[in-house]
């Protein structure tokens, strides 16, 4: 499952998170990969009350309850947005471009939102 949307820029961001939760609830074996602006979803202390929306970071932090195999992030995207991999709402593994290619190639099916 590849998540590429910034958290509050479009409704697709939340839809992709809901799909991830549903995949966990239905006991699918899947990895989660945050790429591009999608890495912004992992920032801690997202205060979205001012725009009348639920915090996506808070929803994501419940993912470990759902048996997600692994959470990966695009290392370049972290660098570009000045984000430190240790301070995110989920424990993540950062991957360089080559490792990303290998991960994507190893999947039976990909959903990219």
């Amino acid at each position: 499952m590849v998540i590429r949307q910034s958290p509050y820029g479009s409704s697709l961001a939340r839809a992709a998170v809901d799909l991830s939760l549903a995949m966990g609830a239905f006991e699918q074996h899947f990895d989660l990969l945050f790429m591009g602006a999608g890495v912004l979803q992992l920032l801690p202390d997202q205060d979205s009350a001012g725009i009348g929306l639920k915090s996506i970071g808070k929803v994501l932090s419940s993912l470990p309850l759902y048996d997600v195999e692994r959470v990966y992030v695009d290392a370049d995207a972290l660098l570009r947005h000045g984000i430190n991999a240790d301070q995110l709402v989920l424990p993540v593994q950062a991957l360089d471009t080559l490792a990303l290619q290998e991960l994507l190639n190893s999947a039976d099916q990909l959903v990219s939102c």
């Binding site: 239905f26 699918q28 959903v111």
Partner: peptide, 16 residues
């Protein structure tokens, strides 16, 4: 969403 998960499990290819 279970309908998507169920259908992708039954398919050879999931096209987005």
């Amino acid at each position: 969403l279970g309908q998507l998960i169920d259908a992708s499990a039954k398919a050879d290819r999931l096209m987005t």
